[in-house]
Computed example of a mutant assay.
Amino acid sequence: MKVYIAAIAGRVPDAMVQSISTFMDACYIARRDDLNEKSIKELEAAVARFHHFREVFRTTGVRPEGFSLPRQHSLSHYADQIRNFGAPNGLSSRVDFISRGMLPPDRAAPPLPFAVDIVQGGAGDFDALPIDDAFVTGNVVLARTRESPRRYPPAAEDLATTIGQPKIAELIWRFLFDQINTDDTITSNTITLDACPEFTGPIRVYHSAVATFYAPSDDSGVRGMRRECIRSTPSWRGQGPRRDCAFVVKDVKQPGMKGMSVVRAQLFFSFDYIGVTYPCALVEWFKTIGRSPDPVVGMWKVVPDVVRGERETSVLHLDTFLRGAHLLPVFGQCSIPVDFHYLYSLDVFNSFYVNRFADHHSHEICY
């Protein structure tokens, strides 16, 4: 179902796609660990939209006898039952544990997540740091092990040739200006390169970064913290390059995708400048289409951001990253060759859906 909606869009009546999308919305909201009155009203609205759009299955003759389906009917009662008994996700197991004497009835709710899960390791190497009192919802750090300098020359000019990005030195200089500059009215895009700090030091390259974020509704660890690896490697399992996408936060005051953008990580690296270590990523940008999600599919649509015929590229600090993002191609009416390899999807298609059904956390932050 995480990829099915995009696959059928444009190939079946729009109302059918909308029916499945709104049904998925209702399922994802109902299974959240934390529900309040706002999310319950969102659930009621999703169920109402689903009941409206599912009529297409009756009018087209797919289900002429109607919808006397117990599980679909039960959706109508979820909101009231949640108000009376709490979130369904984990409710029955808690009651069962209490009845078996395995959990005291007055047991307190789990504590808020702390920075215990901020890590310095890569995939499969998650060594936690001491507990900090800061509440965190997301943190991204580079993998523990850097790639060999023989493979990635530490000098910017040589590295540019190796990775095929001739502007990496310029992008680093402009990045440093934005990091050091305290005047919010001036950005590196509005000045000449000569006005930026000059950096000629060594660069350390990594093939992955680790995101740690609060996702209690998904399979997660202690305090609801979840980890995932964001990769940018020229060879993934010997099949070809893998350059993952990620959400970056642009405006913390705006909700959902209105405050975020999607980027594709082309290179993870770090360097030192005047005693400060900067963990960074060289990224390509995507830009959203319209001011709201696609009305049929229910997901935001993005396209590669192209300026004067070239992909918009920049260097970002890892503290702007939130977590990985999953993009689904907008297939349209094209047919995919049988031998097409998924590793090249982001290079072949012209537009994409930001898949908010990838997991519960994606659904919450994109909703």
Results as ranks from 00 to 15, higher is better:
Ile131Met: 09
Ile131Leu: 12
Ile131Thr: 13
Ile131Ser: 14
Ile131Val: 12
Asp132Glu: 11
Asp132Val: 11
Asp133Lys: 01
Asp133Val: 04
Ala134Trp: 05
Ala134His: 14
Ala134Glu: 11
Ala134Cys: 10
Phe135Ser: 04
Phe135Val: 12
Phe135Gln: 02
Val136Pro: 05
Val136Ser: 07
Thr137Phe: 12
Thr137Lys: 03
Thr137Asp: 04
Gly138Leu: 08
Gly138His: 04
Gly138Cys: 07
Val140Ala: 13
Val140Ile: 15
Val140Met: 12
Val140Arg: 12
Val141Cys: 11
Val141Ser: 10
Val141Met: 04
Val141Arg: 11
Val141Gln: 14
Leu142Gln: 10
Leu142Thr: 14
Leu142Lys: 14
Ala143Ile: 04
Ala143Phe: 03
Ala143Cys: 06
Arg144Tyr: 02
Arg144Leu: 01
Thr145Phe: 05
Arg146Asn: 10
Glu147Leu: 06
Glu147His: 00
Ser148Thr: 14
Ser148Gln: 02
Ser148Asn: 15
Ser148Glu: 14
Pro149Arg: 09
Pro149Ala: 13
Arg150Asp: 10
Arg150His: 10
Arg150Trp: 13
Arg151Tyr: 04
Tyr152His: 01
Tyr152Ala: 08
Pro153Gln: 01
Pro153Trp: 00
Pro153Arg: 03
Pro154Asn: 13
Ala155Ile: 13
Ala155His: 03
Ala155Thr: 10
Ala155Asn: 03
Ala156Cys: 01
Ala156Gln: 02
Ala156Gly: 01
Glu157Leu: 11
Glu157Tyr: 04
Glu157His: 09
Asp158Leu: 13
Leu159Asn: 03
Leu159Gln: 09
Leu159Phe: 01
Leu159Pro: 14
Ala160Tyr: 07
Ala160Phe: 02
Ala160Thr: 01
Ala160Asn: 04
Thr161Ala: 10
Thr161Asp: 15
Thr161His: 11
Thr162Arg: 15
Thr162Gln: 15
Thr162Phe: 08
Thr162Pro: 02
Ile163Ala: 08
Ile163Glu: 03
Gln165Thr: 04
Pro166Val: 05
Pro166Gly: 14
Lys167His: 02
Lys167Thr: 02
Lys167Trp: 00
Lys167Leu: 01
Ile168Cys: 06
Ala169Gly: 01
Glu170Gln: 11
Leu171Trp: 08
Leu171Cys: 06
Leu171Ala: 08
Leu171Ser: 10
Ile172Leu: 14
Ile172His: 05
Ile172Pro: 03
Trp173Leu: 04
Trp173Ala: 13
Arg174Asn: 07
Arg174Gly: 08
Leu176Gly: 06
Leu176Thr: 02
Leu176Glu: 03
Leu176Met: 01
Phe177Asp: 06
Phe177Pro: 06
Phe177Lys: 09
Phe177Gly: 12
Asp178Met: 07
Asp178Lys: 09
Gln179Arg: 08
Gln179Lys: 10
Gln179Trp: 05
Ile180Arg: 11
Ile180Ala: 10
Ile180Gly: 06
Asn181Lys: 03
Asn181Thr: 06
Thr182Lys: 05
Thr182Asp: 10
Thr182Ser: 12
Thr182Arg: 15
Thr182Ala: 12
Asp183Ser: 01
Asp183Gln: 00
Asp184Ile: 05
Thr185Val: 05
Ile186Val: 12
Ile186Tyr: 00
Ile186Lys: 13
Ile186Phe: 01
Ile186Met: 00
Thr187Phe: 07
Thr187Ile: 06
Thr187Glu: 07
Thr187Cys: 09
Ser188Cys: 03
Ser188Tyr: 00
Asn189His: 02
Thr190Glu: 15
Thr190Met: 07
Ile191His: 00
Ile191Ser: 00
